[in-house]
Design a protein around this nucleic acid. Structure first.
Length: 221
DNA sequence: TTGCAATCTTGCGTTTCAAA
DNA sequence: TTTGAAACGCAAGATTGCAA
């Protein structure tokens, strides 16, 4: 029986997705995470999982950057994006950033089963109009390439910079000293090829679902 | 009261080193 | 290689003291 990981911050949707998966794959082993940090721990705990079903926007993730980073850390793990965003451009970008599938949240269990089955067979699956959108730009591809170089801790720091956290606040949240955060920020700037945190945040923001250059804090539930 | 310079505080970034 | 820490310098804003 395959092992599937589900990452979504909405308990109700996780429950619905779990039910749909269990209907099409009776006996499947399921593990869940409600945010990016929990997802990293989950993937570390189940390195041989067969598939990850992942929401695009979760705590600790903005758009495609978590997908890009996760694919870099665990290239062997097939990822299927499950999202309420159904624009062809969003679906195409998810595929171009390494997802093997894209399932709209409006999909019924038959479609979910079809998509999961296809990806487990090693194929790619997405709604037909996903490929009608243009491929990601060379610029976006380059940004994704640079983000892959970040360590998990550096990625966390970058995400927190993106919501306007100060070094001191990040240090408190991560339980380390401010000096350590400064060192991480310096390493991030060097890897991304920028000169300050504002540029780093703007660069990461280019991988948001709506890359308008403005990075908004995650919604409070 | 206003303008200005000196000082202090805060935040950011770099370099270097150590431990795992 | 990654992570964490210390020491240091720089820049900008806030505060303070003083003369006009």
């Amino acid at each position: 029986m395959p092992t599937l990981l589900i990452a979504d911050d909405h308990p109700l949707f996780r429950e619905a997705l779990r039910a749909a998966v269990q209907r099409v794959l009776p006996g499947v082993k399921l593990h869940e995470a409600e945010g990016v940090d929990a997802l990293y721990a989950l993937v570390d705990a189940h390195p041989d999982a067969d598939l990850l079903l992942m929401d695009l926007n979760m705590p600790g993730a903005q758009g495609f950057n978590a997908l890009v980073h996760l694919r870099a850390l665990h290239p062997q793990l097939p990822v299927v994006i499950v999202s309420a965003r159904e624009e062809p451009t969003v679906m195409r970008r998810a595929l171009d950033h390494g997802a093997l599938g894209f399932i709209p949240k409006s999909a019924n269990s038959d479609v979910i089963g079809e998509a999961i089955g296809a990806v487990l067979e090693g194929e790619r699956w997405a709604p037909a109009d996903a490929l009608s959108a243009p491929a990601i730009s060379r610029d976006e591809h380059e940004i994704a390439h640079r983000l892959r170089d970040l360590t998990p801790q550096q990625f966390r720091v970058l995400q927190m910079l993106g919501v306007g956290r100060l070094n001191k606040q990040i240090a408190y949240d991560l339980g380390v000293s401010e000096a350590t955060i400064k060192a991480h920020v310096t390493a991030i700037l060097r890897k991304l090829g920028v000169t300050n945190r504002t540029q780093a945040v703007l660069m990461a923001g280019r991988l948001a679902v709506d890359p308008d250059g403005i990075v908004l804090p995650p919604e409070e539930d």
